[in-house]
Protein backbone atom coordinates (compact mmCIF):
# COMPACT_ATOMS: atom_id res chain seq x y z
CA UNK A 1 0.00 0.00 0.00
CA UNK A 2 1.37 3.40 -0.94
CA UNK A 3 1.97 5.52 2.17
CA UNK A 4 1.04 9.20 1.99
CA UNK A 5 2.85 12.04 3.71
CA UNK A 6 3.55 15.70 3.23
CA UNK A 7 6.52 17.97 3.77
CA UNK A 8 6.50 21.67 4.63
CA UNK A 9 9.44 23.49 3.07
CA UNK A 10 10.77 27.02 2.97
CA UNK A 11 13.08 27.88 0.09
CA UNK A 12 15.21 30.03 2.40
CA UNK A 13 15.73 27.38 5.05
CA UNK A 14 19.01 25.48 4.69
CA UNK A 15 17.62 22.52 6.61
CA UNK A 16 14.70 22.41 4.17
CA UNK A 17 17.37 21.90 1.51
CA UNK A 18 18.78 18.89 3.34
CA UNK A 19 15.29 17.53 4.00
CA UNK A 20 14.18 17.97 0.38
CA UNK A 21 17.11 15.82 -0.73
CA UNK A 22 16.67 13.20 2.01
CA UNK A 23 12.93 12.80 1.47
CA UNK A 24 13.32 12.82 -2.31
CA UNK A 25 15.85 10.01 -1.96
CA UNK A 26 13.40 8.16 0.28
CA UNK A 27 10.58 8.54 -2.24
CA UNK A 28 12.78 7.32 -5.09
CA UNK A 29 13.41 4.03 -3.33
CA UNK A 30 10.13 3.46 -1.53
CA UNK A 31 6.41 3.19 -2.09
CA UNK A 32 5.46 6.55 -0.62
CA UNK A 33 3.90 9.74 -1.94
CA UNK A 34 5.20 12.94 -0.36
CA UNK A 35 3.34 16.14 -1.20
CA UNK A 36 5.21 19.39 -0.77
CA UNK A 37 3.59 22.38 0.93
CA UNK A 38 5.48 25.61 0.44
CA UNK A 39 5.53 28.24 3.19
CA UNK A 40 7.18 31.63 3.35
CA UNK A 41 10.35 31.83 5.44
CA UNK A 42 10.58 33.18 9.01
CA UNK A 43 11.96 36.44 7.62
CA UNK A 44 8.57 37.02 5.94
CA UNK A 45 6.25 35.32 8.44
CA UNK A 46 7.94 36.47 11.67
CA UNK A 47 10.39 39.27 10.80
CA UNK A 48 10.84 40.12 14.48
CA UNK A 49 12.03 36.56 15.15
CA UNK A 50 15.54 37.60 14.21
CA UNK A 51 15.47 40.41 16.77
CA UNK A 52 14.26 38.18 19.61
CA UNK A 53 16.53 35.23 19.08
CA UNK A 54 20.00 34.85 20.58
CA UNK A 55 22.72 36.56 18.53
CA UNK A 56 24.47 33.20 18.60
CA UNK A 57 21.70 31.56 16.59
CA UNK A 58 22.65 32.51 13.03
CA UNK A 59 26.40 31.85 13.38
CA UNK A 60 25.66 28.50 15.02
CA UNK A 61 23.13 27.55 12.35
CA UNK A 62 25.59 28.30 9.55
CA UNK A 63 28.33 26.29 11.24
CA UNK A 64 25.93 23.42 11.89
CA UNK A 65 24.73 23.35 8.27
CA UNK A 66 28.27 23.31 6.90
CA UNK A 67 29.24 20.26 8.94
CA UNK A 68 25.84 18.56 8.50
CA UNK A 69 26.35 18.80 4.74
CA UNK A 70 29.82 17.31 5.07
CA UNK A 71 28.59 14.60 7.47
CA UNK A 72 25.73 13.61 5.16
CA UNK A 73 27.71 13.95 1.94
CA UNK A 74 25.64 16.84 0.60
CA UNK A 75 27.38 19.94 -0.76
CA UNK A 76 26.41 23.11 1.05
CA UNK A 77 27.28 26.78 0.99
CA UNK A 78 25.52 30.04 1.66
CA UNK A 79 23.51 31.00 -1.42
CA UNK A 80 24.57 33.79 -3.71
CA UNK A 81 22.25 35.60 -3.86
CA UNK A 82 20.44 34.80 -0.60
CA UNK A 83 16.74 34.19 -1.39
CA UNK A 84 16.03 36.63 1.47
CA UNK A 85 17.98 39.84 1.16
CA UNK A 86 19.29 40.26 4.70
CA UNK A 87 22.42 41.49 6.40
CA UNK A 88 23.63 38.37 8.24
CA UNK A 89 25.69 40.49 10.65
CA UNK A 90 22.97 42.91 11.76
CA UNK A 91 20.13 40.52 10.73
CA UNK A 92 18.35 43.48 9.15
CA UNK A 93 15.90 42.32 6.49
CA UNK A 94 15.75 44.47 3.34
CA UNK A 95 12.46 46.04 2.28
CA UNK A 96 12.98 44.96 -1.30
CA UNK A 97 12.75 41.19 -1.70
CA UNK A 98 13.17 40.32 -5.37
CA UNK A 99 13.44 36.52 -5.05
CA UNK A 100 11.42 34.93 -2.29
CA UNK A 101 7.89 35.49 -3.56
CA UNK A 102 8.59 34.11 -7.00
CA UNK A 103 10.54 31.13 -5.65
CA UNK A 104 7.94 30.18 -3.06
CA UNK A 105 5.09 30.53 -5.56
CA UNK A 106 7.02 28.43 -8.09
CA UNK A 107 7.46 25.71 -5.49
CA UNK A 108 3.80 25.78 -4.51
CA UNK A 109 2.74 25.72 -8.15
CA UNK A 110 5.02 22.76 -8.85
CA UNK A 111 3.45 21.06 -5.84
CA UNK A 112 -0.09 21.57 -7.09
CA UNK A 113 1.01 19.92 -10.33
CA UNK A 114 2.26 16.88 -8.46
CA UNK A 115 5.94 17.64 -9.00
CA UNK A 116 6.65 19.38 -5.72
CA UNK A 117 9.28 17.10 -4.25
CA UNK A 118 11.26 16.71 -7.47
CA UNK A 119 11.09 20.44 -8.13
CA UNK A 120 12.07 21.19 -4.51
CA UNK A 121 15.05 18.87 -4.72
CA UNK A 122 16.36 20.50 -7.90
CA UNK A 123 15.55 24.06 -6.83
CA UNK A 124 17.02 23.76 -3.33
CA UNK A 125 20.13 22.02 -4.68
CA UNK A 126 20.64 24.81 -7.20
CA UNK A 127 20.35 27.49 -4.53
CA UNK A 128 22.10 25.80 -1.58
CA UNK A 129 24.82 23.50 -2.85
CA UNK A 130 27.25 26.35 -3.44
CA UNK A 131 28.03 25.32 -7.00
CA UNK A 132 26.03 27.98 -8.80
CA UNK A 133 26.66 31.56 -7.69
CA UNK A 134 24.13 33.59 -9.66
CA UNK A 135 21.55 30.80 -9.55
CA UNK A 136 18.94 33.46 -10.43
CA UNK A 137 20.60 34.25 -13.76
CA UNK A 138 20.66 32.58 -17.17
CA UNK A 139 18.65 29.41 -17.62
CA UNK A 140 19.32 27.79 -14.23
CA UNK A 141 15.74 28.07 -13.01
CA UNK A 142 14.40 26.97 -16.40
CA UNK A 143 16.55 23.86 -16.10
CA UNK A 144 15.16 23.18 -12.63
CA UNK A 145 11.62 23.37 -13.98
CA UNK A 146 12.50 21.15 -16.93
CA UNK A 147 14.10 18.58 -14.62
CA UNK A 148 10.75 18.37 -12.82
CA UNK A 149 8.87 18.04 -16.12
CA UNK A 150 7.62 21.63 -15.97
CA UNK A 151 8.06 24.75 -18.09
CA UNK A 152 9.37 27.86 -16.30
CA UNK A 153 7.81 30.37 -18.71
CA UNK A 154 4.47 28.75 -18.28
CA UNK A 155 4.82 28.67 -14.46
CA UNK A 156 5.87 32.34 -14.38
CA UNK A 157 2.91 33.15 -16.62
CA UNK A 158 0.54 31.52 -14.18
CA UNK A 159 2.13 33.37 -11.24
CA UNK A 160 1.59 36.65 -13.05
CA UNK A 161 -2.00 35.73 -13.87
CA UNK A 162 -3.01 34.22 -10.51
CA UNK A 163 -0.27 34.95 -7.96
CA UNK A 164 -2.96 35.88 -5.40
CA UNK A 165 -4.51 32.41 -5.65
CA UNK A 166 -1.15 30.75 -5.16
CA UNK A 167 -0.48 32.94 -2.13
CA UNK A 168 -3.79 31.83 -0.66
CA UNK A 169 -2.57 28.25 -0.89
CA UNK A 170 0.74 29.20 0.73
CA UNK A 171 -1.05 30.99 3.58
CA UNK A 172 -3.31 27.97 4.01
CA UNK A 173 -0.19 25.79 4.21
CA UNK A 174 1.18 28.05 6.96
CA UNK A 175 -2.07 27.77 8.92
CA UNK A 176 -2.14 24.01 8.43
CA UNK A 177 1.45 23.68 9.64
CA UNK A 178 0.40 25.38 12.89
CA UNK A 179 -2.66 23.16 13.20
CA UNK A 180 -0.47 20.11 12.75
CA UNK A 181 1.76 21.20 15.60
CA UNK A 182 4.72 23.29 14.50
CA UNK A 183 5.75 26.55 12.90
CA UNK A 184 9.22 25.83 11.49
CA UNK A 185 10.45 23.99 8.44
CA UNK A 186 11.30 21.39 7.42
CA UNK A 187 8.32 19.59 8.93
CA UNK A 188 7.34 16.16 7.66
CA UNK A 189 3.87 14.88 8.52
CA UNK A 190 2.78 11.26 8.34
CA UNK A 191 -0.33 9.77 9.94
CA UNK A 192 -1.00 13.04 11.80
CA UNK A 193 2.46 12.94 13.37
CA UNK A 194 4.82 15.80 12.71
CA UNK A 195 8.61 15.46 12.53
CA UNK A 196 10.36 18.80 12.66
CA UNK A 197 13.91 19.18 11.42
CA UNK A 198 16.32 17.46 9.07
CA UNK A 199 17.63 15.45 12.01
CA UNK A 200 14.28 13.72 12.58
CA UNK A 201 14.56 11.93 9.23
CA UNK A 202 15.69 8.70 10.93
CA UNK A 203 12.75 8.82 13.32
CA UNK A 204 10.31 9.46 10.48
CA UNK A 205 11.76 6.52 8.55
CA UNK A 206 11.45 4.30 11.63
CA UNK A 207 7.80 5.32 11.96
CA UNK A 208 7.12 4.72 8.25
CA UNK A 209 8.64 1.26 8.54
CA UNK A 210 6.32 0.50 11.45
CA UNK A 211 3.48 1.35 9.05
CA UNK A 212 4.70 -1.04 6.40
CA UNK A 213 6.88 1.13 4.17
CA UNK A 214 7.90 -0.98 1.17
CA UNK A 215 10.85 -0.66 -1.17
CA UNK A 216 9.75 0.36 -4.63
CA UNK A 217 11.36 -2.43 -6.63
CA UNK A 218 11.35 -5.51 -4.47
CA UNK A 219 8.44 -4.33 -2.31
CA UNK A 220 10.20 -5.92 0.65
CA UNK A 221 10.61 -4.17 3.98
CA UNK A 222 13.55 -1.82 4.27
CA UNK A 223 16.46 -2.48 6.53
CA UNK A 224 19.09 -0.07 5.33
CA UNK A 225 18.41 3.02 7.43
CA UNK A 226 16.50 1.62 10.34
CA UNK A 227 17.97 1.23 13.75
Amino acid sequence: MTLKAHLYLSVRNPNSYFAARQYHQLRMGHDIEIDVRAVYPLAIRYPDYFEKTSPLWVPYLIRDCRRYGEFMGMDFDLPKPDPIVQNLETLEIADEQPYIFRLTRLLQLAATRGAGLLFAKHLMTLIWNGKTPGWDEGDHLANVAAAAGLNLDELDGEIEFSGGQIDKQIFANQDKLHEEGHWYTPSFVFDDELFYGESRFDLALWRLEQHGLQRRNSLSPTTEHGK
Partner: peptide
Amino acid sequence: EAAGHWGVPTLVVDDEPFFGQDRVEMVLW
Protein backbone atom coordinates in the same frame (compact mmCIF):
# COMPACT_ATOMS: atom_id res chain seq x y z
CA GLU B 1 27.87 31.11 25.43
CA ALA B 2 31.53 31.78 24.70
CA ALA B 3 31.66 28.39 22.97
CA GLY B 4 28.83 29.46 20.68
CA HIS B 5 25.49 28.29 22.08
CA TRP B 6 23.07 28.87 24.94
CA GLY B 7 21.03 25.66 24.93
CA VAL B 8 21.64 22.22 26.38
CA PRO B 9 22.79 19.59 25.86
CA THR B 10 25.81 21.11 24.14
CA LEU B 11 29.02 19.16 23.79
CA VAL B 12 32.12 21.17 22.96
CA VAL B 13 35.16 19.51 21.43
CA ASP B 14 38.13 21.37 19.99
CA ASP B 15 36.24 24.68 20.49
CA GLU B 16 33.33 23.43 18.36
CA PRO B 17 29.84 23.30 19.95
CA PHE B 18 27.34 20.56 19.09
CA PHE B 19 23.89 21.41 20.39
CA GLY B 20 21.17 18.82 20.78
CA GLN B 21 20.69 15.12 21.41
CA ASP B 22 20.49 14.73 17.62
CA ARG B 23 24.17 15.65 17.17
CA VAL B 24 25.74 12.77 19.12
CA GLU B 25 26.65 10.79 15.98
CA MET B 26 28.15 13.90 14.45
CA VAL B 27 30.23 14.44 17.58
CA LEU B 28 31.69 10.96 17.19
CA TRP B 29 32.40 11.64 13.51
